[in-house]
């Protein structure tokens, strides 16, 4: 599903967010990206979602090389990826319902269907009844869950989440991870970036550790990413 082959990302300011990283995520797999702050977790996710392109190496997602994807194909590409952002990226002037509905609206889903699926998604993150609230009227943890609902509402085959549990209490964090696990069980590929090592260990899933932009335990062999498992 996802293959990084010696991918590097150098930001315009010269900082290297990711260096020569090779990794691989199989279809239907759920993996964690861990590492200290600044290690490059968000950079990996941005490269997957085509919010950035690698400055060197290749990133292939769902069989498509992100470097050579024509601009007109990018929207369709992104519609197949649900993204939970570290900073939520909600539309602050729109109620919760509109925020969650957005991926369905851009995909041209019929209104009736949108209504049903938005409610289902909000139900899954425990926010049913908050449809009309504005994001800033919610707690940070609730905002985070709105972001999660938006990422899953269109049932994308790939879900990437950047610190999705960063602002949640331990019970809610576990709840969200269980939700992700349920998605994985129905075939969704999931990549979660997190600091929360305890949660990762508890779930016992594969972990890709980043350190200063390098994939730990990997050497120059591009296939090494495959065995960057614990």
């Amino acid at each position: 599903m996802i293959v990084f082959d010696r991918a590097s990302k150098r930001y315009p300011n010269g900082r290297e967010g990711l260096s020569n990283a090779s990794l691989r995520v199989e279809e239907g797999e759920m993996v964690f990206l861990t590492g200290r702050s600044g290690a490059g977790k968000s950079t990996v996710l941005k490269l997957i979602a085509l919010l950035e392109r690698p400055t060197r190496g290749t990133v292939v997602v769902g069989g498509k090389n992100t470097a050579s994807l024509a601009p007109r194909h990018i929207p369709a590409f992104r519609r197949r990826i649900g993204i939970v952002f570290q900073d939520h990226k909600l539309l602050t002037e729109r109620p919760v319902f509109d925020n969650v509905a957005l991926p369905l609206v851009v995909a041209g889903t019929p209104l009736k269907e949108i209504d049903k699926r938005v409610r289902a998604a909000l139900d899954q993150v425990g926010l049913l009844g908050k449809e009309r609230a504005l994001p800033l009227e919610l707690s940070v943890g609730e905002q985070q869950r709105v972001g999660i609902a938006r990422a899953v509402v269109s049932k994308p085959p790939l879900l990437i989440a950047d610190e999705p549990t960063g602002n949640l209490d331990p019970d809610l964090a576990v709840e969200v991870m269980r939700l992700f696990k349920r998605f994985q069980e129905v075939g969704v590929t999931i990549v979660v970036a997190t600091h929360d090592v305890h949660l990762v260990r508890e779930l016992g899933l594969r972990e890709i550790v980043l350190d200063h932009g390098h994939v730990q335990g990997a050497d120059i062999d591009p296939l090494a990413g495959m065995i960057a498992t614990r």
């Binding site: 992104r78 990226k89 991926p103």
Partner: peptide, 11 residues
């Protein structure tokens, strides 16, 4: 708003 719309796949 435009950025977010593009992120979720708005053409």
């Amino acid at each position: 708003e435009i950025e977010v719309t593009k992120i979720v796949g708005g053409s």
